[in-house]
Amino acid sequence: MEWIMAVAIGALFMIGVYLILTKSLLRVILGTSLLTHGVHLLLLTMAGLKRGAAPILGSGSESYVDPLPQALILTSIVISFGVTALFFVLAYRAYQTRGTDEIDGMDAEGKEADS
C-alpha cells in the first residue's frame, strides 16, 4: 500500500506545483490546497500505514499507529484553512484593485495605475 501512496503523493505534489505555477490566482490557491493534501498524506505514510489500531488507548489493542504525525497533521489542517481563507481574500482584494486575477498582469496593471 505504501508505494501506491508514495506515487499518489507525488502526483498530488505535481498537480499542486503545476497549478501554483499558472497565472490565475484561483488556480494558484487550489494548487496550494492540493499541495497541502499531499503533505498530509506524506506525513501519515512516512510513519507507516495500518500498523495498529487508532491511537485511542483502552481499546484493547496491542499496538497503535504513530499518533505524532496525526497531531502534526491536525495542526496543519486547521492552519491551512486559515491560510487558504487569507489567500482567498487577498486574491479577491487584488482583483478588486487591479482588475485582473492574473499574477503577471497585476504588475503591469499596477505600473500603469502608478504612471
Binding site: 508514495a6 505534489f13 505535481m14 498537480i15 506545483v17 506524506l42 505514510t45
Partner: peptide, 12 residues
C-alpha cells in the same frame, strides 16, 4: 512540477 512530484515520491 514533475520533478517535484518525483522527488517527493522518492522521499516517501
Amino acid at each position: 512540477a514533475a520533478g517535484v512530484g518525483i522527488t517527493v515520491t522518492l522521499v516517501a
